[in-house]
Structure formats: structure tokens, C-alpha cells
């Protein structure tokens, strides 16, 4: 992750990572219960602005990620738009029946996906793994074994990627690229087994080495990085509250569609 984050000086990097994680998780609950289409439209616009303002990716990467997110969001709504129930039919073609209700519901689902993706991108683009897991240990009291386990696992990612390339090359040299369903199943299995076996062996060796050095065998411990709180956390809460409330207010002032309640749970 570290390499693709261009400018790590942005203020979103300085927010307490656990706090950021919890807030973004809570936002997820908020937008899961919203069934007012107008609110979702405004919230999506505001979060898009927020994402563009604070994300840690380079401009080009964030542009393509937005395009990808839009694509995913549009298609997460297609099943509902084409096959949803509704009485005011707009378009009918064999099994595909598009009605006003299904269109509104589908759009809402697409916007939900869009907002959740943006939240995920904000989180992913402005969090570095090391402070994140240190913060999990210090603020959320996640057991040291789990947090360091994650950190150790993250360090193995480049090795995994390299291994993947090796396996692919080895198979190419041996002419193992056949077509057909059975060959594809065999190929997936071969990749998975080679990757898994090597990863499990490596993880086990690492754990043995850590325990040989008496890792986490004593109760009290100190941390190399102390993750604390700062004014940025206050600012962050302020911005998020403003965005959320702004979305609700704007949808009240400027309702763009007549649909205020489109999903019944």
C-alpha cells in the first residue's frame, strides 16, 4: 500500500487510525438505514467532494478509481432495475421489466455502493498499515498477537506477489496453459496449492522464530510508536458530521426526486 500513496502529508493521515476506522464503520450503518433517494444523492455528491479533497492517491489513480467505482455502482443496481417489482412500468422486454419503483430502488442501491466504496477508498488511501495496527493495539486493545500477526503477514505480501510470478513463469515454461473447464480447475488448484503451501510454511517458521524470542509471552510491553490523539481528530469529526448533516439538510431543501422512501426492510 505504502508506495501508491503519493503525498502522506495530507491531514487525513494524521487522524488517529482507530478513530477513523470506527467513524467510517459507523457511517456505514447510517447509510444502510437511509431509504430516502434524495438524501443518498446529496450524500454521494458530498462524499465525492470529500474524497477528492482528502484522498492520498495521486490524481491519476484517484480518477481511475472513481471511474471503476462508478462502473461497479451502476452494475450493482442492474439486477434491481431490470427485475425489481413495481406497478408503473416504463419499459418491458421479455423478462426485463423496468418500473419507476424498481428504477428508484436500483438507483438507491447503486448510490449506497458508491458511498461505501468512497468511504473504503478514503480509509484505504489515507491509512498506513503500521500506525493502523499500532493504534488498534493501543486504543482498541486488540491483542498484540493478532495485531503483530497482521503486520507480519503484510510484510509477506511482496514475497507472495513474487512467488505468484514465479509459479506463472514455471507453468509457462512447462507448457501448462491448456483451455477448457477441467484445465481451468486444475490451474486454479495448482496456483492455490503452491501459494498456500509456501505461505503456510513461511508463516509457521516466522511464528516459531517469534516465539523463540519470547514474543508476547510477558504481560506488559512497550511500543516503538505511540499513537495518540490530536486536533485533527476533532477536525475530522467536525467534517464528517458536517457532511452527513449537510446531506440530510440539502435533501430537505432541494429534493431532486419525488422518492423519499423506496425500500421496505
Amino acid at each position: 500500500m505504502g508506495e501508491i500513496q503519493g503525498n502522506t502529508d495530507k491531514w487525513f493521515f494524521k487522524i488517529n487510525p482507530s478513530f477513523k476506522f470506527l467513524i467510517i464503520d459507523a457511517l456505514f450503518i447510517v447509510y444502510l438505514v437511509v431509504s430516502n433517494l434524495n438524501t443518498m444523492i446529496w450524500a454521494a455528491c458530498l462524499f465525492l467532494i470529500l474524497y477528492l479533497a482528502v484522498n492520498g492517491f495521486s490524481a491519476r489513480l484517484s480518477f481511475w478509481l472513481i471511474i471503476l467505482t462508478l462502473w461497479v455502482s451502476v452494475f450493482s443496481s442492474t439486477a434491481m432495475i431490470f427485475f425489481g417489482q413495481g406497478t408503473h412500468v416504463l419499459f418491458r422486454w421479455y423478462l426485463v421489466v423496468i418500473s419507476e419503483e424498481s428504477l428508484a430502488r436500483g438507483t438507491l442501491i447503486g448510490l449506497r455502493t458508491f458511498i461505501f466504496s468512497l468511504l473504503g477508498l478514503i480509509m484505504a488511501s489515507t491509512s498506513r498499515p503500521v500506525p493502523f495496527f499500532y493504534s488498534l493495539m493501543q486504543q482498541l486493545r486488540v491483542p498484540v498477537k493478532y495485531a503483530y500477526g497482521c503486520l507480519a503477514a503484510f510484510r509477506m505480501l511482496p514475497m507472495m506477489a513474487e512467488e505468484f510470478v514465479h509459479i506463472r513463469q514455471a507453468m509457462k515454461v512447462r507448457g501448462l496453459r491448456q483451455k477448457g473447464i477441467k484445465a481451468m480447475y486444475e490451474r486454479i488448484k495448482r496456483y492455490a496449492l503452491a501459494m498456500l503451501a509456501q505461505s503456510i510454511r513461511r508463516a509457521q517458521r516466522t511464528a516459531v522464530a517469534m516465539e523463540a524470542k519470547r514474543f508476547s509471552m510477558t504481560e506488559s510491553r512497550t511500543y516503538y510508536y505511540e499513537i495518540g490523539w490530536s486536533r485533527m481528530d476533532l477536525l475530522f469529526s467536525g467534517v464528517i458530521v458536517a457532511v452527513v448533516i449537510g446531506g440530510f439538510l440539502l435533501s430537505g431543501w432541494f429534493p431532486l426526486t419525488p422518492y423519499t422512501h423506496v425500500i421496505d426492510h
Binding site: 498477537k145 493478532y146 500477526g149 505480501l157 503456510i200 509457521q204 517469534m210 514474543f215
Partner: peptide, 17 residues
């Protein structure tokens, strides 16, 4: 134990990838 946790997480990362 530590081995289980590390192995599980690494396996999960492979799948996550």
C-alpha cells in the same frame, strides 16, 4: 496460539489478494 493466528492471517491475505 501465535502460529495459528499467523497462519490464519497469512492464508486470509492470500485469499484477500
Amino acid at each position: 496460539n501465535l502460529t495459528d493466528i499467523l497462519v490464519t492471517i497469512v492464508v486470509a491475505l492470500v485469499f484477500g489478494l
